[in-house]
Amino acid sequence: MTTPFTGDRIVLNDLGFYGYHGLFGEEERLGQRFFIDLQCGVDLTAPGNNDEIGHTVSYADIYDVVKATFEAKRTKLIEALAQNIVTGLFEAFSDIDWIIIRVRKPEAPIAMVRGEAAIELHRTRPT
């Protein structure tokens, strides 16, 4: 196994979703935008050398798992949402060794004029 969070990676940034995650009733009722940035540690040597899809994890398939997990279960905390996505990705893709995920919430219910609230998880595949 490679050193966590170094080496090759598949990156998906600024994935936008509309969802109903959050602590407050307004968040559950009205929903809001969320953005997800994702890095998945995958050895990309084989696809780099042979130019064939069968030797890598498809970023389209990663997106599908993120979307399905985001929509499957409402969470109160974005930390739980991020962990659910990480768990789903590890279950779906045995080639992923580690994941860095950031969940951003630009309309968090706090009095900010500009910016966003976010969390970031760094996870390695459970042994």
Rank of each mutant, 00 (worst) to 15 (best):
G25E: 15
G25V: 04
G25H: 08
E28Y: 07
L30I: 14
G31V: 12
R33E: 11
R33H: 12
F35Q: 13
L38I: 03
L38E: 01
G41Q: 15
V42A: 08
L44G: 08
T45E: 10
T45G: 08
A46H: 05
P47L: 03
G48L: 05
N49F: 01
D51R: 06
D51G: 10
E52G: 02
E52V: 08
I53R: 12
G54K: 07
G54W: 01
H55F: 08
H55G: 08
T56E: 06
V57C: 02
V57R: 02
S58F: 00
S58Q: 07
Y59I: 00
Y59H: 02
A60L: 13
D61E: 13
D61P: 02
I62G: 00
I62T: 00
I62S: 01
Y63V: 08
D64Y: 01
D64K: 13
V65P: 05
V66Q: 06
V66A: 07
K67R: 15
K67V: 10
A68D: 14
F70D: 00
F70E: 00
A72R: 14
A72F: 11
A72K: 15
K73D: 13
K73I: 09
K76P: 04
L77D: 11
L77H: 11
E79A: 03
A80S: 15
A80E: 09
A82S: 10
I85H: 01
